[in-house]
Simulated scan of single mutants.
Amino acid sequence: MDLLSILVTVIAVVLSMSVHEMAHGLVSAWLGDPTAKIRGRLSLNPLAHIDWTGLLCLMLFGFGWAKPVPIDPSYYKDQKTGIIWTSFAGPVANFLLAFVFLLIYTLLSFFAPAFVSSGFGAFIAAVLMNTAVISIGFGIFNLIPIPPLDGAKIFWSFLPDREYYRMMAGSQWTTLLFILLIATGVLSRPLVMMRQTMLGWMLQACIGLIGLFI
C-alpha cells in the first residue's frame, strides 16, 4: 500500500469512527445525559474517539471499533429505550455518512468527470468512496449482537430487564467469543457481502436521485 492509499484509508477510518461515536454522544445528550459532553466526546476530533486496536483492525480488514462514548442511562426517562436509541445512533450515522459521500461521488462523476480524472480530483473521489465503504462496514460490524457492540444492546433488549443488564455487563465467554470472531476472520466473508450489497443499494439510490433532475 503506497503512502497516498494509506492517507486515504486513514481519513476514511477517522471520519467513520468519529461520526459514529459523536452520534452516540449526541443522542444520549438529547435524551438528557450530559456525560459525553462533560468528557469531551461531542466532537469530531478523532483523538477523542480512537481505540488503537480497533483502528488497526478497521484499516486492515475494514471492520473495527472505536473507544465507547460514556453514557449514564440513569438520566433517561426509560433506561432501556434510551440505550437502544443511543446504540442505534452510531450505525445509522455511519450509513448516512456513507450515503452522503456516495451522493457527492456520483454527482462529481456525472457532472465533473474531468475533475475526477485529475490528480486532486482522483484523491477526493478516493476519499469519498473509501469513506463510504469503510463507514458501511463499520456500521454493519457494530450491529453484531455480541457485547460490547451496539447490536447487543439492541438485539438483547427483548430480554427481561434483569437478564438484559446481566448480558450487557458482559462475561469472560462473550469477550472470548468477540476476540475469536475477530482473530479467526470467520465473519469477514458475510460482513463483506453485506457491505457490498448495501454499497450497491446506496449507489443505485444515488443514481436514481440524480436521474430525477437530469
Rank of each mutant, 00 (worst) to 15 (best):
S87A: 10
V127F: 05
N94M: 12
A89R: 07
G90T: 06
K77M: 09
F88P: 05
G121T: 01
K80H: 00
Y105R: 11
L96V: 15
T131G: 13
L108Y: 09
P91M: 07
G137Q: 11
V100T: 14
F115H: 04
K77R: 14
L107R: 04
V92P: 15
L97N: 08
F123P: 10
I144F: 04
F141Q: 05
S135D: 15
K77I: 08
S74P: 06
G90Q: 12
I146C: 00
T131V: 13
L107F: 15
A122H: 13
G82F: 03
A66Q: 10
S109W: 10
I134K: 04
P73I: 09
I140C: 01
W85G: 00
I83K: 00
P113A: 02
I146R: 01
W65P: 01
F95W: 11
S117Q: 13
L97D: 05
T86I: 01
F141G: 06
I146K: 03
N94K: 12
K67Q: 12
T106S: 14
I83A: 00
V92S: 13
D72R: 13
W65H: 06
F88I: 12
I144A: 02
Q79W: 04
I84W: 00
T106M: 08
N142K: 03
G139N: 04
A93I: 06
A89Y: 07
F138S: 09
M129L: 14
F99A: 12
A132C: 05
A89L: 05
G64I: 03
Q79K: 15
W65N: 03
F63G: 11
A132W: 13
V92K: 12
P68T: 15
F115T: 04
V127Y: 07
L143Y: 02
L107M: 13
A132R: 08
T86S: 08
I124W: 05
G90Y: 12
I83R: 00
L128H: 12
I124V: 07
I84M: 07
F99L: 13
G82R: 01
F95R: 05
T106A: 09
W85S: 00
S74M: 09
L107S: 10
Y105P: 09
G82E: 01
D72G: 11
L97I: 14
P91H: 02
T131R: 15
L103D: 03
V69A: 01
M129G: 08
S87W: 00
F95H: 04
P70H: 13
V100C: 13
A98P: 14
L102W: 04
V116L: 10
L103Y: 09
P147T: 11
F138N: 10
L103T: 04
F63M: 11
F99S: 05
N94S: 10
G139P: 08
P113D: 01
N130E: 04
A98S: 15
F115C: 04
A66I: 02
A112Y: 12
K67H: 06
V127H: 12
I124M: 05
I124K: 01
I144W: 03
V116R: 10
D78W: 01
P147G: 00
Y75L: 02
G139D: 06
G137F: 08
W65V: 03
K80I: 05
F123C: 04
K67G: 02
F88L: 15
F120I: 12
V69L: 04
L97A: 06
L102P: 07
S117D: 11
